[in-house]
Design a protein around this nucleic acid. Structure first.
Lengths: 206, 206
DNA sequence: ACCTGAACACCGTTCAAGT
DNA sequence: ACCTGAACACCGTTCAAGT
């Protein structure tokens, strides 16, 4: 087949198809992606020269962009703004839970996600955190949101227990309710906010 | 080459070689593993019939076993015991930081790791947590330890910032010191313990 | 510019054949 | 029982060839 008069592919189409595959299969491969787009695998490289790695970067950027779209900064208190930030990011990640394992372990360098972290850094700075405390605050919120997202993407039950060998754990697993991951996220978010508050107090601000 | 008089391979050798590869390359493949053991890829399947997935399971079990080996339960208070548990698991995971992305997203069913979580469940139960609160407590500690381990495995700097576009974030990144991940872990651990304490108080125990 | 098919160097896994 | 080589169905990526 020759070159079509209108391009069949675009970055946006590629990203959307990749997300659909991740949502369905927990992962995507280049041939699968090409098949879904009715195109040959090599065609993909005309639109995304960095290949698979660049596509993953694009997906991360999409999540970052969606998160910022959810963020309507009101004049609320710093802790409410941190809560909003964490919930928005968590919500955006939760729409594609299987994406998190794919994203994990790579350094962030796309503009939307960096913009997102700039937002958080600004809130924490306005709250009064500086220097190393600011970095620790960022890390604290970041680790919690990403950790909770990985947790949300994990299969339930988390633990495959035998009542004989692990009675206490087994009993706990039995009383798991729907929304466990969501409630864990909220509980930990409370914990993180409290800790930020005590860091602020320690550094001498109310 | 025929069958040797003494087996060249064993589960233990395979696991150790796989860990070495993960430590060096952040991952392992069956051919790489075979080459390192001086053997053909197909040989591996005589010792580990579940293939790559079973090897990964074995690595998780090793970490679980090592963690329990670090745990010498003293008659300390529940919060000290939770701290010990989290630090031991964190330490075991930190010895092989690149292993975490490999482990993530699979349900736990090996005995050593289940034993480990049974330990934690027992401590939390003795502290007074029951039913759903116990599950939330387990999740809280679990998410934090694994999230912090992923964080520790991430490349520094976490964010590739341009001072023009992301001034606050850039400034924060500049003041990152060595041990950032370790200090984040400790700070979050404090937060988790405090939150567990307030859950206990809410449910009516001192 | 955009798509194709062929090619390359990889994967994980199976299996008959050897001892 | 334990190791081998060949084979299968996959990967991601490159590249000359087409329009």
């Amino acid at each position: 087949m020759p070159r079509p008069s209108k391009p069949r592919l675009s970055k946006d189409k590629i990203h959307r198809a990749a997300l659909e595959l991740v949502d369905r299969d927990q992962d995507f491969t280049m041939p699968q992606l090409a098949a879904r787009l009715g195109v040959s695998p090599s065609s993909l490289y005309h639109h995304v020269k960095g290949g698979r790695a660049e596509i993953i970067d694009g997906l991360r950027a999409r999540i970052g962009g969606q998160t910022r779209h959810l963020l309507h900064e009101t004049g609320a208190s710093w802790d409410d703004r941190v809560r909003q930030w964490a919930r928005a990011y968590h919500a955006a990640l939760s729409r594609h839970p299987f994406l998190i394992p794919v994203l994990v372990g790579e350094s962030v360098d796309d503009t939307p996600t960096l913009d997102l972290y700039e937002d958080l850094a600004t809130v924490l700075r306005e709250a009064g955190l500086r220097g190393e405390d600011l970095v620790l605050g960022l890390s604290l919120v970041d680790v919690w949101v990403l950790g909770a997202a990985v947790d949300a993407a994990s299969p339930e039950p988390l633990w495959d227990t035998d009542p004989e060998k692990h009675p206490v754990l087994h009993d706990a697993v039995r009383s798991v309710s729907t929304g466990r991951a969501a409630r864990t996220f909220e509980l930990g978010l409370d914990a993180v906010i409290s800790e930020l508050r005590s860091v602020l107090e320690r550094s001498g601000r109310p």
